[in-house]
Design a protein around this nucleic acid. Structure first.
Lengths: 218, 218
DNA sequence: GTCTATACGGTGATAGAC
DNA sequence: GTCTATCACCGTATAGAC
């Protein structure tokens, strides 16, 4: 265990990671596990394998460290959703399908993001400001989202439904099962494998459900 | 402001409330607002208008005080849901309708319960045990729930769907919009009144959606 | 940049007077 | 039962040596 490590080039395939990166990754893990209030700077330091005071050296305070991670999470979610909603297709089926695929993918890639964001905004309502200013920076107008979808819903042979309702239905069906996983597994999927199978097929099932709601052929 | 209050009979219409009750109500408010980790015994004492050490006198510890409230929340939700699922009706439409009404009512009566339960179980996974033992005490077998619904789904002219999927779809559509309220209001219902109107009609809309999913007439 | 030591305000919980 | 005082510890943050 006395391998030379003085070289800047690490011998493992592992790439060189800056202390900032190591801290951010450790902090992310701990904040996701414990939430802002439950997280401890000491635990983050342990997770990062470094001294507690270094966290303050690089990020000044717990709040600032948290905000970096919170912002990163928001930016991970939003662009993909936005891109889907404003997607260049006049066919509502395509929009519905990509919305569903986007959300189910996000949920499978980062099962914790939605719960984390909703929790932290609920516990610390000031944080809604971060999301607000992020949206402003992006130049997105919520009304545009609604109008964009609404226009596409004005097609013949489609059951009339409010655009906002359509959107919240899709998000509910895709995101909630993962949020409710611990309780859902107790009541409905006592076998973990069964739950995973269910989540794998979620995208198709939600699409079929939405087609039925809109009374269109899949 | 020097009204005599020495009498046991309070002059207002307000009824006599035991210290235990006052503490529990205050604690509930604070725990809902801040979560277990964010809540402070001092804040609960302030909210209850009494000395901090009285909280320990009546409930010994923060954990025990919390558990009382957590258990109360679980017992508020579960019996109503269970009663609906095992309800004496062979018609799946009745079961679906009462499930939807039960959940939308719960969500409107206590907008915080579901988020609170899911949050606290997620942050402190040990607490799933409380739910487990509560279910055991009740003598409920999850498989029975599924089978009960599944049997009712074996009717002609109904689109085949897995019972567990049906249940999670209903809960998702009813519960998630309230859980996501802060973010949903930012993107989709910038006007609070509009959101309330939406939630008022939620029960009917979800019922219509479920009828379409099952391909039955409402 | 990284460490040790420490300041400083909480935070849950208890002892003991009344 | 209710209060004050206080304990023992924790948690963020900083000072200062190296």
């Amino acid at each position: 265990m006395n391998r030379l490590k003085s070289s800047k080039y690490v011998d493992d395939a592992e790439e060189e990671r800056s202390p900032e990166t190591v801290i951010l990754e450790a902090a992310k893990k701990v904040f996701i596990r414990k939430g802002y209030d439950g997280a401890r700077m000491q635990e983050i330091a342990d997770e990062a394998g470094m001294n507690k005071s270094l966290l303050h050296y690089y990020f000044r305070s717990k709040e600032q460290l948290f905000n970096k991670i919170f912002r990163e999470m928001l930016m991970f979610v939003w662009p993909k959703v936005e891109a889907t909603i404003f997607r260049e297709s006049s066919d509502i089926r395509h929009v519905v399908k990509s919305l569903i695929q986007t959300y189910t993918l996000l949920v499978r890639q980062r099962p914790y993001v939605f719960m984390f964001i909703l929790e932290e905004i609920g516990r610390h309502p000031e944080r809604i400001q971060q999301l607000k200013s992020l949206i402003d920076d992006w130049g997105v107008k919520p009304q545009h989202i609604i109008k964009s979808i609404d226009k596409k819903l004005k097609t013949k042979h489609i059951h009339h439904i409010d655009a906002r309702e359509l959107i919240i239905n899709i998000i509910s069906l895709c995101v909630f099962p993962m949020i409710a996983q611990p309780v859902a597994m107790l009541f409905l999927w006592p076998d973990r494998k069964e739950f995973e199978k269910f989540m794998q097929r979620r995208s198709e099932h939600v699409y079929m459900a939405m087609c039925n709601i809109l009374k269109i052929k899949s």
